[in-house]
Simulated assay, not measured.
Amino acid sequence: MELFFAHPEEIQQNVLSEEESRHAVKVLRKQVGDEVYITDGKGNVFVARIIEIRKKHCKLQVFERKQFPESKHKIIIAIAPPKNSNRWDFFLEKSVELGVSTIIPIKTQRSERKNINIERAEKVLISAVKQSHNYFKPKIYSLISMKEIPEYLPQNFQSVVGYCGDEFSKTKLSEISIQSRNIVCFVGPEGDFTPDEVQFLIRQIQSVPVTISKNRLRTETAGITFAAQMNLLISLHEK
């Protein structure tokens, strides 16, 4: 099933965006009368029929809506984006596939990246939603400082921070017990968090330092591993 994406306001207006319309008509050769499947990234899939093809958009007639349940647990990844854009895009793509609900890019003392392109990130996330058929698009924020982190977290959550140093006692991620529906995972830059940053997360966020692998992982790999292992822990918790 070929899946298209439309923002809620586009669904209300019964249209596909110019980009999605171009893909439907020019690439997939869709014609008037053809059925299309559309998601809004909020758990809804709409079945529609193309009733008019215009220069900049396709006009639709939506005749069915399917609503999919959201996971009871939310995985939130707060991560220092890697400098390499391809690695960052790879992390974003896999975050969608693994059901991450929120991505919070953070700027740390050792961060190599000082800004991110939100528009590009949104396009990567939307593309991954369409490819993976995960009907929930993660929310992504602009780059924030460590001190701003508490403002972006839900009221109730548990938190873990991946750390390679020996200054703090650490727990294996596989031994963490799921105690909240909101799970925040902190991933540092290539040079890792500084001890002061980990101390801040422990004191201000009540983060638990963890090890996620016996090997040293790249930032994007650590973020993906966090998401995958948290999914496993959640599934075991729900049994």
Rank of each mutant, 00 (worst) to 15 (best):
I103G: 04
E167T: 06
A128N: 05
P105W: 00
S95A: 15
D89E: 15
E119H: 05
R120T: 07
V124P: 06
K94I: 00
V124E: 09
D166T: 13
E167D: 15
F168N: 08
Q158R: 04
I144P: 09
K139E: 15
L125A: 11
L98R: 00
E119D: 14
F157P: 10
S142A: 12
I116R: 04
N117P: 07
Q131E: 09
E167Q: 15
K147F: 11
K114A: 10
Y163V: 08
S145R: 12
V96W: 00
G162D: 10
Q158A: 09
T108K: 06
W88P: 12
F168H: 06
Q158D: 13
I116L: 14
K147V: 11
N115K: 14
I103H: 03
I149H: 04
G99A: 09
G162K: 03
K107V: 06
V161G: 12
I144F: 05
E151P: 01
D166K: 14
V160I: 14
S142G: 15
P150V: 04
K147R: 14
D89S: 14
V160N: 14
K107R: 14
E97C: 07
N115V: 06
I104Y: 02
S95R: 00
K139H: 13
C164H: 11
E151I: 07
Y152A: 09
I126Q: 01
S111N: 08
N117H: 07
V96M: 02
A121E: 06
P154I: 04
V129H: 00
I126P: 01
V96Y: 00
V160H: 12
Q109H: 15
K107F: 13
G162W: 05
Q131C: 08
V129F: 00
M146F: 03
F157Y: 15
S145G: 12
K123M: 05
S111G: 12
I126F: 00
Y163P: 10
S127W: 01
S101Y: 02
I149C: 07
G99P: 08
R113L: 13
N117Q: 09
R120C: 10
F136I: 05
S127R: 00
E122Y: 12
K94L: 01
K130Q: 12
A121I: 04
N117W: 03
R87S: 12
T108Y: 08
A121L: 04
I140L: 02
E93I: 04
K107I: 11
I144T: 09
E112V: 08
F168W: 09
A128D: 06
Q131K: 04
N115M: 12
K107G: 02
I118P: 07
F136H: 07
P105F: 01
Y141D: 10
I106Y: 09
Y152Q: 12
V129G: 01
S101R: 07
K107E: 13
N156M: 07
I140V: 13
Y152I: 02
E112N: 14
E148G: 06
I103D: 07
L143T: 09
D89M: 04
M146T: 13
Q155E: 15
K130N: 07
E93N: 13
N134I: 12
L125T: 06
F91V: 00
V129Y: 00
K130F: 01
Q109G: 02
I118F: 12
I149F: 08
S111Y: 06
P150R: 03
G165M: 10
F136T: 03
P105L: 03
E93A: 10
E119G: 02
